[in-house]
Nucleic acid binder design. Structure first.
Length: 593
DNA sequence: CCACGAACTA
């Protein structure tokens, strides 16, 4: 009884008072302790047991796997077999859960073979565990074979299959299974909806959310985490706020997962004050929570504060992982903290034994390059134990643009073009570097090369939300219903900017030379059209939040600083790599990006 | 007396 009520220590006292202890009483106490997470105590008693049943062994195997000690769990399972105890389906499920945690495909296959070899019948639950482990290890075909061969398919089996297909990115296959299901539960809906969100098929995700509601389900925390991550990636602050309000009035528990998702939404919408309030409300902050706040501060130009939070995190004895260090290095990169970056990069290896991945090298190349240490950046690339990818060379190329180094730029560009000959951004970057240095012959050679290879420049676009409606703007696109008013506003903007002393940077204007664009009378980048629309349609007290698919250019950056000052408006632009908070003629990035 | 499913970070 005590075990059942979770009073393990009371149970332990009763147990110690029993004179004639049989296997069942031993097992009960061991299982109770293991389930309560008192693994050392459980193990201690387990080792002292005069005899052990399958259930005793399984209690320990599952205790370890539930405590996320997958290695110990599997070790114990192997000991159980060598002790001559035959596992049942329950034991197999327990050990497979440990395999799933490790994402160890080889081990999972071995366990599966053992099931056949030992003649253990595949129960419904065991089939689910097998499907789940294969799906988690990325072997969707094996998962499907188990699924197809299991006679009666219970709901979790379908859900595990759907989840597996979503993880593989095969959203159509997932949907086809979803449609075949006769009964669906909330998990089915959540899995499918999250799958759509992760494939950026947001219309479909929304449609599924509507279906979820009309099927009579109440959104739970998984639903909300999915929706919040969609808002985060779409910069949909209004919808995100509505979800936040819903969470506050609903009975959904505010736990670390939901808190982190909310925090991430606010950070990705450029609202660090709100993000910070959420952050302070989260009780059991884990490494992800800290990583989200560090990366959020980093992206929003508060690099120093981000690093302070990294120190706080370590004071709380939370061990940073590889992703946390990417946040730290991003903070250094966006705030030009070269020395701090060097220190953290070294500590990551020496203190935490984390092997730098390609992303860490990418950050370092970015930091060194933009700090003007181009030679050192090249040296780092040459000494990398991993083959540098296009992102690494792209960082170097970008640094060459900032620091006007044509020689290294050519080297970097050649590497990228060898790796990704259809990457339009490289041609554009190189073109700009040549154009900026006045080397028009080489510039036009690049232009011709692009034409020969049929590489099309990605159109730049920006969007903003007004009254819950998303408005997308592409330079030169006149399809917006209010285009005439917008163009009037653009004229007013141009006049006011001129009065404020704005001169377009002509070399940067050539950045986006696209013949089609050039023909347009209205030659401006999309973010400025979006800002014009924001000035027209948003209340004067509201900040203007813009999302842009490419990096903001120097000319627009200067112009927006002036617009923010002239109109006395806060303007936030989220470009493809970071945030720019414009206010009173200044930008949070201090012109470093 | 033992088991099972989904989520947030670059």
């Amino acid at each position: 009884m005590y075990v059942e009520f979770g009073c393990v220590q009371d149970a332990r006292r009763v147990f110690d008072g029993i004179e004639m202890k049989d296997v069942v009483s031993w097992t009960t106490i061991v299982a109770g302790l293991a389930r309560a997470g008192c693994l050392d105590e459980a193990r201690n008693l387990f080792d002292k047991m005069p005899e052990r049943s399958v259930i005793s062994w399984t209690s320990m195997v599952s205790g370890y796997s539930q405590a996320r000690c997958a290695v110990e769990s599997i070790e114990l399972f192997k000991k159980m077999i060598s002790a001559g105890v035959f596992p049942d389906t329950v034991a197999m499920v327990a050990v497979l859960s440990a395999c799933a945690q490790l994402r160890d495909l080889e081990l999972s296959k071995w366990v599966h073979q053992y099931v056949s070899y030992a003649g253990i019948g595949v129960s419904d639950n065991l089939a689910v565990a097998l499907i789940d482990v294969y799906a988690k290890c990325g072997d969707i075909n094996s998962a499907r074979r188990v699924f197809d061969s299991s006679g009666q398919k219970i709901l979790p089996a379908w859900n595990a299959m759907i989840d597996g297909y979503c993880k593989m990115g095969d959203i159509d296959m997932a949907r086809s299974l979803f449609d075949q299901m006769e009964v669906r539960d909330l998990i089915s809906f959540n899995s499918m909806m999250t799958g759509y969100i992760q494939c950026s098929q947001l219309k479909q995700a929304l449609q599924l959310f509507v279906e979820l509601r009309t099927s009579g389900f109440q959104p739970d925390k998984f639903t909300l985490v999915g929706l919040l991550s969609a808002c985060a990636n779409l910069n949909s602050l209004d919808q995100g706020k509505a979800l936040h309000a819903y969470i506050e009035v609903s009975s959904i528990a505010f736990d670390v997962f939901l808190g982190t998702a909310l925090l991430d939404m606010y950070a990705k919408c450029g609202k660090m004050d709100e993000a910070m309030m959420i952050f302070n409300r989260i009780h059991n902050k884990d490494v992800m929570t800290w990583t989200v706040i560090i990366s959020g501060l980093a992206m929003n130009g508060k690099g120093k504060l981000a690093l302070e939070h990294f120190d706080l995190m370590r004071k709380e004895s939370i061990r940073p992982n590889a992703v946390a260090y990417i946040g730290v290095l991003t903070a250094c990169s966006h705030s030009n903290l070269v020395e701090e970056a060097r220190k953290h990069f070294k500590e990551m290896i020496s203190l935490h034994n984390i092997e730098p991945e390609i992303e860490h090298y990418g950050c370092m190349v970015d930091i060194l390059g933009r700090g003007g240490l181009l030679q050192e950046a090249v040296k780092l690339i040459d000494g990398m134990p991993i083959e540098p990818n296009a992102v690494i060379w792209g960082s170097l190329l970008n640094a060459c643009r900032v620091h006007k180094n044509v020689d290294i730029a050519e080297k970097a560009a050649n590497h990228i073009l060898a790796l990704e000959p259809n990457e339009d951004a490289v041609y554009v970057q190189l073109y700009n570097i040549y154009a900026n240095s006045g080397n028009w012959a080489s510039a036009s050679k690049i232009r011709r090369l692009m034409e020969e290879r049929g590489v099309k420049k990605t159109a730049g676009y920006s969007y903003l939300t007004v009254a819950g409606q998303v408005h997308k703007f592409i330079a030169g696109d006149r399809s917006h219903p209010e285009i005439n008013e917008i163009e009037t506003m653009m004229d007013v903007m141009a006049k006011k900017l001129k009065l404020a002393g704005y001169l377009p940077i002509t070399s940067e204007v050539s950045v986006d030379v696209d013949e089609e664009e050039k023909e347009q009378a209205l030659f401006v980048h999309s973010e400025r059209i979006a800002i014009a629309y924001g000035l027209m349609r948003l209340g004067t007290s509201l900040p203007i939040h813009i999302m842009k698919n490419l990096r903001i250019c120097k000319d627009c950056h200067i112009a927006i600083k002036l617009i923010a000052k002239t109109w006395n408006r806060k303007i936030v632009v989220r470009d493809r790599s970071r945030f720019h908070h414009f206010s009173d003629g200044q930008c949070s990035c201090n012109d470093f990006w």
